[in-house]
Design a protein around this nucleic acid. Sequence first.
DNA 1: CGATATAAAACCGTTACATCA
DNA 2: ACTGATGTAACGGTTTTATAT
Length: 339
Amino acid sequence: MELALSLGDTSKPFSSKLSSKDLGFCMGLNGSSFNGKSEEKSASDHHPSPIQLDLLPFSPVPRAHHHQPSSQLRFPWLNVVSTEPGPMDGAGGGGLDVNRFPVAMAQEEADDGTTALSSPNSTVSSFQMDHFCIRNGRSKRDLFDVEISHDRASSRASDDEENGLTRKKLRLSKEQSAFLEESFKEHNTLNPKQKLALAKQLNLRPRQVEVWFQNRRARTKLKQTEVDCEYLKRCCETLTEENRRLQKELQELRALKTSQPFYMQLPATTLTMCPSCERVATATTSSATATTAAAATTAAKGNNSNNKDSSVTLQLANKPARLFPFSQLPQAQGAQSTS
DNA sequence: CGATATAAAACCGTTACATCA
DNA sequence: ACTGATGTAACGGTTTTATAT
């Protein structure tokens, strides 16, 4: 088993493109080959897909931009008929809408220069934000704060300093959050039209919707990172254990080599060596006397139940193992000196 | 057709605030 | 009433991307 470990945006698993800024983890397990992200594209094209963790309930869309076809404009609230109660209908009306400030919104829409919402072709219902009212028992003070916040919050820029107020944070109502969450499941990014539509639906500023989506994406990424870290940790433990096992095996092989000199007189057929890499591979013959040390030791230990690799290649110390009987070296290796 | 400029959108790290134990 | 931890809305700066020239 080999591991393909890459650091990058998990939303684009194993793509050839790796931004140095990508901090997400992506880890794959591959039964046959290394499939690293840093490799060229061809690598990932020809190997089985590695395991990939993905928390997202949808396929993340690359930066939305304005190219998203309008057919993708599917928001949960599109089912809402204007005459029917909206998803936040529990409000029962009469409550104070924390997030209302029509003037600011109108201004912002004008700034965006889009008339999407007023278009007769717009699929957005006329469901209005009167439904988003306070009903979670906020105090009067809370309401006051929120209104202050709205008064100040006409744009992204900081007119805060101008009126000498520090920024006040409003809490979105449960309904608003749920609504945003639903739409996030549909699209984790918004194009301007969608943003405006959402903002109007929820009676929030487009900037608020935008920020909410940004933060939501960040939360998703953070969660994914946590999962990936946990997974990497487990993989690391597994590899450490494997390494320990192999080290032990190597030690036993060395001991065997010194304590059993006639081990070196094994027929050449029992130990084969790759001519290119000069590594000894264990023989697959089942001759009793020619049982290879590796096979013997691992079998004796009986702890190789999870050792699926039946052709362990061993390399002793820093030099490739050369376990051929000296007498046979010339035949095996050509005209090499026997000294 | 590639290089460059520009604007918009997304990302990132951080701060400030609300809430809760 | 106070406090620290936690969650999250909001911000400013940076990077990425698409488009125009």
